[in-house]
Simulated scan of single mutants.
Amino acid sequence: MERLLMLLLLSRVSSPVQHSLKYFLTGSTAVQNVPEFMGAAEVDGIVMGYCDTDTKIVELKLELMKIFFRINPDQLEEYNRECFKNYPIFFRALINSLKQLFNQSGGVHVLQRMDACEWDEETGEVHGFLLYAYNGEDFLSFDLETLTWIAVKPEAVTIKQRWDTHKYGNEFHAMFLTRICPDLLRTYVVFLKSLLERKELPSVSLLQKTPSSPVSCHASGFYPDRATLIWRKDGEEIHEDVELGEILPNHDGTFQTSADLNVSSVPPEDWRRYECVFHLSGVEDDFVTRLDKADIRTNWVSPPEFPVIVVIGVVIGLVLLPLFIVGLYMWRRNNNGFRRANTLDTSPQLSAISLDRISSPDQYCSED
């Protein structure tokens, strides 16, 4: 997997002592209903704020950060200046240069950048990253040891050579990644301590729609969203016949996710070899749920087993059905043969027959 995409995935996972601050910047051209420039900041994978050139406002996602920036308005003003002035101009110019390098004219083009730092709370160790991607592929990265750029694509060599001559700019990148960003991160971690340390444990259930449907391992009510849900067989993680769901928000601020296991080819005696494992970042113990039919919740109802007496009753009913039909169409004989009665016969002979003594349709007929 490409380095930038890998780092984006790793940004969702952190340990209790290792923290991260990441800035994601995106510029684009000719993308309908998408702002020309967007930016977002994350602390330990939690979105702190967002901005774009359409709304022209820094939207703070956390109530604690709203309080923080009321206390530190200069920082908020700096974010506004970067979001709506400096970076949109820079990204627009860089995209135009990249289109020339790749011999491109119009069309959709997307430029992404990530500035990030990581800080280990126990050791004090700091790491920094600055990466560019163009149209979904890694393009340039900054080397903190040499203070030079690494061209991932041949087309990036020209820009690398040009940027390597900007000594002041490269020194500023190094200072931001190793000093300014970690200092900001430490400040944010202290201010967001109650939020970052919040842990809500999930409720894990096994669900199945029908006996032939996949078994869904469903975890809900956990916080934060840095979690994994997998299926294991004999203690080993499996991917075949497993479909992983997304982590989705609940209405109360917690999260939910699921992982489906196709059991159509699993013999009943092998079910207990499978287990669903939920891991929440920062929590040592995993939630392990063994695959057991007795623990599966379902809305499916088995068809009722019909007692023998009911079956006999149905058979008798089918046998008597012709008799019932004959009873509806009463016939009587006259000199010209049989004719259908249009109205109920109220002759004394018929009226005198007690209903509880009628046992044959012949009793409805008499000879003239």
Score class of each variant (00 low, 15 high):
residue 2 E to M: 05
residue 2 E to G: 14
residue 4 L to I: 08
residue 7 L to G: 13
residue 11 S to D: 11
residue 11 S to F: 01
residue 22 K to E: 09
residue 24 F to I: 11
residue 24 F to R: 07
residue 25 L to G: 05
residue 27 G to D: 11
residue 31 V to R: 06
residue 33 N to R: 10
residue 35 P to Q: 11
residue 40 A to E: 02
residue 44 D to I: 10
residue 45 G to W: 05
residue 47 V to A: 13
residue 48 M to A: 07
residue 59 E to C: 14
residue 63 E to N: 10
residue 71 I to H: 13
residue 71 I to C: 13
residue 76 L to H: 12
residue 81 R to H: 09
residue 82 E to V: 03
residue 86 N to M: 09
residue 96 N to S: 13
residue 97 S to G: 06
residue 99 K to G: 09
residue 100 Q to S: 14
residue 101 L to K: 09
residue 106 G to N: 15
residue 109 H to F: 07
residue 117 C to Q: 05
residue 119 W to D: 01
residue 121 E to K: 13
residue 134 Y to N: 00
residue 136 G to Y: 10
residue 138 D to F: 02
residue 139 F to M: 03
residue 142 F to N: 05
residue 143 D to G: 10
residue 146 T to I: 14
residue 146 T to Q: 13
residue 150 I to V: 07
residue 151 A to R: 01
residue 157 V to A: 08
residue 157 V to F: 14
residue 160 K to Y: 08
residue 161 Q to V: 06
residue 162 R to A: 03
residue 165 T to C: 12
residue 166 H to I: 07
residue 174 A to W: 05
residue 177 L to P: 00
residue 178 T to L: 08
residue 179 R to N: 10
residue 182 P to S: 07
residue 186 R to M: 04
residue 186 R to W: 00
residue 190 V to K: 08
residue 190 V to G: 01
residue 195 L to E: 00
residue 195 L to N: 03
residue 196 L to N: 01
residue 198 R to M: 12
residue 198 R to C: 11
residue 200 E to H: 03
residue 200 E to F: 02
residue 201 L to N: 07
residue 206 L to D: 00
residue 208 Q to C: 01
residue 212 S to H: 11
residue 212 S to A: 12
residue 219 A to W: 03
residue 224 P to F: 03
residue 227 A to L: 01
residue 231 W to Q: 14
residue 235 G to K: 06
residue 236 E to M: 10
residue 237 E to S: 07
residue 243 E to M: 11
residue 244 L to C: 14
residue 249 P to M: 01
residue 252 D to R: 06
residue 252 D to N: 10
residue 253 G to C: 06
residue 254 T to V: 03
residue 255 F to I: 03
residue 262 N to G: 11
residue 263 V to I: 01
residue 264 S to K: 13
residue 270 D to G: 10
residue 271 W to E: 13
residue 277 V to M: 04
residue 284 E to R: 04
residue 285 D to Y: 04
residue 286 D to L: 13
residue 294 A to D: 04
residue 296 I to P: 01
residue 297 R to F: 14
residue 299 N to W: 13
residue 301 V to E: 09
residue 306 F to K: 08
residue 309 I to F: 15
residue 310 V to R: 15
residue 317 G to H: 12
residue 318 L to A: 11
residue 325 I to K: 02
residue 327 G to Q: 04
residue 328 L to S: 04
residue 334 N to M: 08
residue 337 G to P: 11
residue 338 F to R: 13
residue 340 R to F: 04
residue 343 T to P: 07
residue 346 T to F: 08
residue 346 T to G: 09
residue 350 L to H: 09
residue 352 A to F: 01
residue 353 I to W: 07
residue 357 R to H: 08
residue 360 S to N: 10
residue 364 Y to R: 10
residue 366 S to R: 05
